Simulated assay, not measured.
Amino acid sequence: MATVLRKSSDLDSKWMAILIIASLASQVHSEWWSMGRNEATLEQAANRLIPCSEIKSLSRSQRTLCESYRDHLKFVSEGASEGVAECQHQFRHRRWNCTTTATNTGSNGTGSEKPLFGKVIDIGSRETAFTYAISAAAVVHNIARACKMGELSNCGCSDEPRPRGLGPNWSWGGCGDNTMYAYGFAREFVDARERDLASPLSGAQSRGRKAMNVHNNEVGRLAVVRGARPTCKCHGVSGSCSINSCWWQTAQFRTIGDTLQKKLTEAVEVKMTRRHGLRSRRRVDGSISDSKLVFLESSPDYCTPNPATGVVGTAGRYCNKDSTGPEGCGLLCCGRPHASYTEVITERCHCKFHWCCHVKCEVCRKRVKRHVCT
């Protein structure tokens, strides 16, 4: 009898472990940035009547935060969309161009929720590092501006102190972007997903990936905070400069994307330490600061489709036959041939402003030469 009970207890323990692992695996694809996938998911996030528990792209802790900060979710989802758009802009000429996957999403934003960036995001590569950083940066950027616009109940204008060196004729205190509040909220919300994935059952690879993600999230958030600057303007009646005011303002998001792209070229390859930290694989890289992107694995071959890694390849991509850069047919097509054809396009032209107040344009037809990787 005791033997039977022992076997039953062992089976229960095994099943419990399997259930925990399955629960963790199901959360891996709970990607908050999927809220910015399309109009349906954006509307779902913005609709405060929809309970947080029904937003499938949130992890467990993110749903809890959502309950307390439901009005923030609209701007988080818009940030996610902005982050994807900027990622695609920065990689538009690269072999991996921040490709997103399709999903069968219903009118209420639910459906077969595929990972937004596909399997390729499971690889701890340079490109993945950038994706996490730009997504976290977009949340800070959007929340900071939403605070300034009075859209959120928990925050208002920036309370940054008056900068040193600002002339006495300039008044300080105009309503600025609240980067400090946005940074704090984004750290709690974005990193919550990584905390949910942490488990005593996680192996060294999983713990290393968590550390990488959290580090790159921080690099993205700080890129926004450190990129903010005082902005000044003089104004008055009839164009006079009688009133001089300054406020705190974040950089344009394109500028932040450019900053992170530069960091990508200087990204540091790292490995796990015994204390679950990260350190550079090369001593010459020195310490890993919060201004450096980090990655754990080499980038996969982005040239040819590979279902195992989620790579879609470069066939069908437009290239520039006259360029020797990454957008050139030689590099983008990975040494494969490219096809050329002529296409007739229509565009607005000869536009004129008519008083008052509209612009009238003609429609012109133009022949353009296209080059496509085969």
Rank of each mutant, 00 (worst) to 15 (best):
G310T: 15
S323Q: 06
G330S: 12
R317G: 00
S289K: 13
G330M: 12
T324Y: 03
C334G: 12
V311T: 15
G316V: 06
C303K: 11
K292D: 11
P326L: 07
D290R: 13
C334T: 15
L293A: 09
G325D: 15
D322E: 14
R317M: 01
C334W: 09
V284T: 11
L331D: 10
A315D: 11
R317V: 00
C329V: 08
G325F: 09
G328H: 04
G286V: 08
L293W: 01
T314P: 00
C319L: 06
L332I: 12
E297L: 05
S287I: 05
K321E: 15
C329D: 03
N306S: 15
V294K: 00
N306Q: 05
G330L: 14
A308G: 00
N306V: 11
K292C: 08
G335K: 06
R283A: 08
D285Y: 04
R317F: 00
K292L: 08
S298P: 05
N320W: 11
E327H: 10
G286P: 05
P300T: 04
T314I: 01
R283I: 01
I288M: 06
S289G: 15
T314L: 01
G330K: 15
D285Q: 12
V294H: 01
E297Y: 04
I288F: 05
P300M: 01
G330V: 15
K292A: 14
C329L: 02
G325K: 09
P307G: 10
G328M: 10
S289V: 08
S323P: 00
S298H: 11
P305C: 14
G328V: 04
S289D: 14
T304E: 12
L331T: 14
C303Y: 11
E297D: 13
V294T: 11
P307K: 06
C319E: 06
R317S: 07
L296E: 04
V294M: 02
G335Y: 05
K292V: 08
K321D: 10
V311A: 14
K292H: 14
T314S: 09
Y302V: 03
V284R: 09
C333Y: 07
T324L: 13
R283D: 08
D290E: 14
C333G: 03
C334I: 09
L331G: 00
C319K: 04
L293T: 02
P307L: 14
G335D: 05
C303D: 13
R283G: 03
L293Q: 02
F295S: 08
L331N: 13
V284N: 01
G330D: 12
T314V: 15
N320F: 09
T324D: 08
G335Q: 09
R317L: 03
G328R: 03
E327L: 09
S291C: 03
V284H: 02
V294G: 04
E327F: 11
T314M: 00
N306G: 05
K321I: 10
R317I: 00
G325H: 06
V284I: 10
T324G: 03
G328E: 03
T314Q: 02
Y318W: 02
A308M: 13
T324H: 00
C319F: 07
S298D: 15
D322G: 15
G325Q: 09
C333M: 09
N306L: 10
A308R: 07
P305Y: 10
V284F: 01
G310A: 08
E297V: 04
